[in-house]
């Protein structure tokens, strides 16, 4: 019993365990709610919650219900990450971001600007692309949608270019 507890709640999962649980969400969300898995659209709800724009047609039309199910889904993901971290016994707060923190050694103010800029690209890009990793790359491809395969290919192209430029800057001694 103790071993099972440790495997599920304390040790990191092998890739296939995460893949199976995440993949099962697609048919389960359809079965229970007839809804596609997707996260990025819910950021529109947060535009409404945080900035309260009045005159933006897209926001008014797509997000008539401010606190929709998407806000609950997003809150759930935060809670899920919290539970996972508590069970691993890691500190409550951490300023590290893996190798970025280790190698870049940026001032916290510049780190804030860096991740803010990355977030802007993610938010703007996912809306123009019509979805993100969950909606396109997982849900769309699992349903064999060509549009999602094409979008995912460009996600990967952008990611490979950006991460390798970052790697040259961080590890290659340029700059």
């Amino acid at each position: 019993m103790k071993d099972i507890y440790r495997i599920i709640f304390a040790d990191p999962w092998p890739f296939w365990a995460g893949g199976i649980v995440i993949g099962l969400l697609i048919p389960l969300l359809y079965y229970f709610h007839n809804t596609a898995l997707g996260v990025s659209t819910g950021y529109g709800n947060f535009v409404k919650i945080l900035f309260r724009p009045k005159k933006l047609d897209w926001i008014n039309k797509q997000f008539s219900e401010t606190i929709s199910w998407r806000v609950y889904f997003i809150a759930g993901i935060v809670i899920g990450g919290f539970i996972s971290a508590r069970l691993s016994g890691i500190p409550l707060f951490s300023a590290e971001m893996g190798q970025f923190t280790l190698l870049a050694g940026l001032h916290p103010a510049l780190t804030v600007i860096y991740f803010l800029a990355g977030g802007v690209l993610l938010g703007l890009g996912s809306r123009i692309a019509g979805g993100c990793t969950s909606g396109h790359s997982i849900h769309g491809i699992a349903n064999l949608h060509f549009s999602s395969m094409a979008v995912t290919a460009l996600f990967l192209v952008g990611g490979i270019i950006a991460a390798n430029i970052l790697r040259i800057i961080l590890e290659g001694g340029i700059g």
């Binding site: 993610l122 890009g125 996600f155 952008g158 490979i160 950006a162 991460a163």
Partner: peptide
């Protein structure tokens, strides 16, 4: 848009 997203993902 997907390429912009990918750059944000990588950064």
């Amino acid at each position: 848009g997907a390429a912009v997203f990918g750059i944000g993902w990588g950064l």
